[in-house]
């Protein structure tokens, strides 16, 4: 199913979920989504600087269920330590794309140029193919992917996005600090 980009941005919310780094935790999170009928758009899992915890970044489709219901059900999982909601406009987001494209010598420079325009990198070169990489906001990756389709794409992989809240550009004390409404109160993770 394809969704118009502006519609997709409304429907997609980012949850960063701090979980205990224990066996089966990803299955618990994924199982919750499937049994409650919540849709996951993308999912990225990685360890944190504290080896007791991992972070799962989930882009959820709020058309499938109210965000609040998804968050509250997630919060009931005993291994879920903290959940932060990020509206796409209030987060810095990055995703990584790897693609192998057919690039005969004649087309090769065009592909390399395209990668350069987007600020990507060529990672691997074969006689008739190139493997390229681009990191960026998901919409930039969408545009890049669209343009790459002009060439024969052999294989493409995206990681799903990771995100952090945007920082307050004002120095502390310059104005009263107001917690953005979209930021859920974050339970304090246990001291390490």
């Amino acid at each position: 199913m394809t969704v118009a980009p502006e519609r997709a941005a409304e429907r997609h919310h980012i949850l960063t979920v701090l979980v205990e780094n224990k066996a089966g935790v990803l299955a618990r999170v994924a199982g919750l989504f499937s049994r409650r009928g919540f849709n996951i758009f993308s999912l990225a899992v990685a360890p944190t600087d504290d080896d007791r915890f991992s972070r799962i970044t989930i882009v959820v489709d709020v058309a499938s269920a109210p965000l609040e219901q998804i968050v509250r059900q997630l919060d009931k999982l005993v291994n879920v330590v903290a959940i932060t909601e990020l509206a796409p406009t209030d987060a810095v987001q990055r995703e990584l794309l790897l693609a192998t494209v057919e690039a005969e010598p004649a087309a090769r420079s065009q592909v390399i140029q395209l990668v350069g325009v987007f600020g990507g990198e060529v990672l691997d070169v074969g006689p008739t193919r190139l493997t390229v990489m681009l990191a960026g906001p998901p919409e930039t990756l969408d545009s890049f992917e669209g343009l790459l389709a002009t060439y024969a794409v052999v294989e493409i992989q995206r990681t799903g996005l990771v995100a952090l809240p945007r920082l307050d550009p004002h120095p502390p004390g310059a104005r009263p600090r107001r917690e953005p409404a979209h930021l859920r109160r974050l339970p304090t993770p246990p001291a390490s």
Partner: peptide, 10 residues
């Protein structure tokens, strides 16, 4: 534990 994941509190 896999079977009962969705029908236990934990």
């Amino acid at each position: 534990t896999g079977v009962t994941m969705g029908i236990t509190k934990h």
